[in-house]
Design a protein around this nucleic acid. Sequence first.
DNA 1: CACTCTACCTGTGCGC
DNA 2: TGCGCACAGGTAGAGT
Length: 267
Amino acid sequence: MPELPEVESVVRSLQPLQGRFIETVHVCWDGVVDGLTAGQLSQRLTGRRFGSIGRIGKYILCAVEADGHATQQFLVIHLRMTGRLYLAAAEAVPNTHTRLIIAVSNGRQLIFDDPRKFGRVSLVDDLGPLYGKLGPDALKLTEDEFRRRIAGHNRQLKTLLLEQSFIAGIGNIYADEILFRSGLHPLMNCSKLSAAQQERLYSALSSVLGEAVEAGGANIDGVFKAGGFRVAVYGREGRPCVCCGTAICKIRVAQRGTHFCPACQPA
DNA sequence: CACTCTACCTGTGCGC
DNA sequence: TGCGCACAGGTAGAGT
């Protein structure tokens, strides 16, 4: 399940796209395109050139340069749960889960696979609305800004961390990992945090995400493998805490499976 | 504002 | 073996 570190890893892998011309666009499943029709997407992209490839939170942003017919636009891609975005050789053939193929001028293809069909692709003129609905990217968040933003809320820590308008990029897995590292209970209300606890939370957030990015994403035994970051609590219900040996608990918070150590993260 | 629920999807893994 | 079903969860949108 791609969250910020996995998306960052994808963005890095897509850098060779920059400067390449789009030769063909093949939408394999129409539902993947959001906000315009598959035909419009194809027509508007074909013949144009990719600019810089970046990201905010879990959204992948591919600039499409201005040409004689159109101003600069952005191809915005969200992988949601099961999306995979990667470059492949021109000869690569679509599999049953391939939703979109963009062939580019160096004989390669940008391929978007998504078994669950949750992922979406759109083309926008302006990133303003997207930036407007998202909080600051979790990797760029400063401690001061974190304190300032948390002060206005009265919510459970887990729910708050998942809120993209609060901080962009954290999903269910890293929310659990961040809370574990900070030693805070997922149901604790953010308004009850002491200054020291706020600092621990910020520090855990930065270090967990930083390490995960460095490792190229998470590695969850038998479930998900993007990189080498080993999770401590996610998916480990009933197994011993890596820190104290107590059995990891699983509860539901905001309709999400939530894992924590009852000893290291007391209520 | 905080929260809850539902819809969107399908592969996986369980019990029977 | 195969069937039915709960489950996984990011986001939007509606409702309490």
